[in-house]
Write a protein that binds this DNA or RNA. Sequence first.
DNA 1: CGCATTTGTCATGGT
DNA 2: GGACCATGACAAATG
Length: 807
Amino acid sequence: MIKEYFTDGLIGLAILLSIFRTDLVGINNLINYPEVQEIILGQTVAYLPASYNHIINSHHPFESSKHLELSNEAFSAWHLNINNLPFLRERHRTEIEAFLVSGTQQNVELENFTGTPTTLNVEHEDNQIVDLSGQNLPEESASSYSEATISNDNVPESSEDTLQTAIADTSIVNNPFPGCNLTKEDLDLIDVLWQQDVDLGVGKEVFDLFLRQEIETKKEQELLKHQEWEKSQLQLREKQEKERQEEAEKWLKENFRRDGETGEWIRNSNGPSSSLDYFETDDSFTLEAALDYLSTNIDHALIKNLDISPGIIPSYSSDQLTDNCLIGTPEGQGFQQSQQLLSHQDSLEESLNGLLDFLSNEPVEDNSASLDQFGIDLNTGNITSDMKLDQDLDAQTDYLIQNVTMQSQEIQPVANEMNATFPFLSTNSSDQMNFDLDSLSFLNSLATMQNGGLDDGELFENIPVDSNETLLNANIPLNESMDTFTVLHDNFSQSLGAMASPSSYDGLCDSLDGLEGAIGGSDLSASSQNNITRPYSKVNRLSESSNDSGYPFQSGFSSSSPASSSASSPAGCHYSNISTSGNDTEQDPQNTQTVARHAVAHNHTYNTPPGQVPREVKKYAPKEPSRKGPHSRDQRRLEEFKIPYTIDDIIESPVETFNEMLKSHKLSEAQLSLIRDIRRRGKNKIAAQNCRKRKVNVIVNLSDEMVDLEKARDKLLKERAEIEKETLKMKEKFGHLYTHIFQSLRDEHGQPYDPNLYSLQQTSDGDVLLVPQSMNRNKYSNSSSASSSPTSSKDSVNSKKRKSFDE
DNA sequence: CGCATTTGTCATGGT
DNA sequence: GGACCATGACAAATG
């Protein structure tokens, strides 16, 4: 910076001296300064600020600010030359005008000194840069290599035509100096300059063809090497991916079988988790069932040491804990499902081997998968997962909140066992586990755990213990925990931000449903029907949904991809359907039905037109459950006919499914008729609802339009009134004027004309005529009988007595 | 009981 | 031709 500053100053000083005709060569002190030497030798030119560039002559595209390179002799010669200019000798001005920039050799113009150093070029009139010894050079070589050309007289001259051609040729790299054949000496000189670190403006390879080729070859080789390396990396990655998939598939096939009809994956009865017979019917596995199971197996001795809300906290007898480390395989299923999806977490899986060893009671895949889902970089604690992973994590963590309210130290053994049972759940039970989902300290705890004494099996040995800290804020009763769960989830959904944008939360959906009455539309529900599976509604209804057919949990396995969903795990299924929900109508009609029920059971109160007081929305709202309409009648008839379908099944299912339903059971004609009837009426009912909504919308729009039209009409009426008022004014004015003019007229005797006998009329050309009334009558009668042209009337008037008045 | 409103159903026509 | 949708008309349910 300082150097640059001084350089600029010195250059300016040099120019000043040259202007004042001071012989720079004679000032030894000055010229011996290294900076001045650099200026002269051109070394420092590279430091010149970029503002020089604006002085570059636009006619010489190859010039650059870096070409201020003059040898000592050249600079002296140039300086002498300048000094000898008669034009300069005559100048004795206090105003500093400097920087000879362009001009002929004999007639160098001086341009105003702007205070900034600039490019020095002595330019011939015909755009050929002239070296100071008087030789004409091609512009490119002169501009780019002024130093070389100055000291080298071997450079051949080139004509202006050649120059123009060269300028047009922009392919510098291929042929940077057309018309300028560099000899070996030239190249040697360039080499010397290059070794002296003289800035030539371009790389050395530009001059040396062989060097250029060599560099290009090197570059190509490097590129090839890089490509090969990338290719091998890609192959390696693909291979790893494949292996992982095979492993997962193998595990799935070992533990599950695929239903030939439905395509669902069903757990084998002899699977690794089958020891928990209680949960064998895992399709209908619910939290309630799990809690029931737990409550029946609580080791009362342990309860003393646990701050447990009975009925909430999963707790196990020691035997069960050691024998069956995975409670309710649904989690295992869900995790396994997710494993494939999250297969990129391989490194994590490897890094958790210690933990897996500790959890050796568990099938490795299960644990790894469950841990896999967290997607944590164990070194940093950062979440490395994608959105899906975060969602699963979110879901799981929420699940924990429902179930875990443990206190620390005293329950270490249980905690360990619990940890074995819910590896994702109580990894750090003695640590103050802050379930604030935003902070994700829970995840950090995993990292801590991993770094802790896993090998010796003392999982929590190194973890600081705060026995006074509960894992959760309180022992939350089940229902409250559900609420808390929802609330927490809502909070976390904010942090998820756009990721959670599908707004698939029950609370939101419920509020939307609640809004429907007011906004009079099921469109929102319709959208939710199409796009949102509302997984949380399932979770929230776990306590009441034992007969809910397990729709949400079947969906995952009925999907063709085993990784598409963590089925049957209430914790793992939350978001699983979002990605595929767009096809729910086709792929998962049952699930759609579950949602569709919300869409059907609407309050179809009409829209409230703007400006009207909203009607009482709840007027008819409570009646639906008590209503004994055809719906219940149909249900009854279905039961009478022993038809194994619900009304919703019949109405909401797509045609294909509906036809399969009819075919799958041998139904009588009456049964078929009833089913078709129910479907038709149900469809029509929805259609009627939609139709009414549309009708209301049309009415609203029409009323809006009517208001607008009324406004427009009022405006037009107002305008008309204004115009009529103006017209009246004009008529009055005209009347006054007419009277005034008429009374001013006098006949030959100086008497005023009788207004009953004469009247004033104006022709189209502006003349005012005094017309006798008889003429008027004739005229009017003429005009009434036949159209009389203005000219004819005028002629007739002219033939009569015509009075012109000067006033 | 009469009225207004909502809702379900039927018939019909269109896609 | 069947499925589906839209809509007018009617009737039942409801407040």
